[in-house]
Amino acid sequence: MNSNQNAANQSSLNEWPLWEVFVRSKSGLDHKHCGSLHAADPQMAIQLARDVYTRRLEGCSVWVVRSDQIVASDPADKGMYFDPMEDKVYRHPTFYKLPSEVDHM
């Protein structure tokens, strides 16, 4: 881990987790990914998702998923030899698990 990621891990200990937001704008349509936000718990994530991502939409449905719970496929055109990436969506330092001594309070 480089020092940038170390610093990121430190700040991540007190940061609200990141959530991905999916919104269905009209009945009959699919939920679409519209972005992310930070929230401390699932209830807050849903409320904030409505405040932030549905200000101009009526009658919609909102899903929130913790970003570190998303598993993504590898892009099709990458051979294994050229692809150094893990199969997590984002190279986000705060997705690292918290050290056990601060994981539960």
């Binding site: 609200w16 930070h38 929230a39 409320q47 904030l48 405040d51 932030v52």
Partner: peptide, 11 residues
């Protein structure tokens, strides 16, 4: 305290 709450309170 956090940007998301700026939006919520002004809502």
């Amino acid at each position: 305290p956090v940007l998301e709450e700026d939006i919520a309170l002004s809502n």
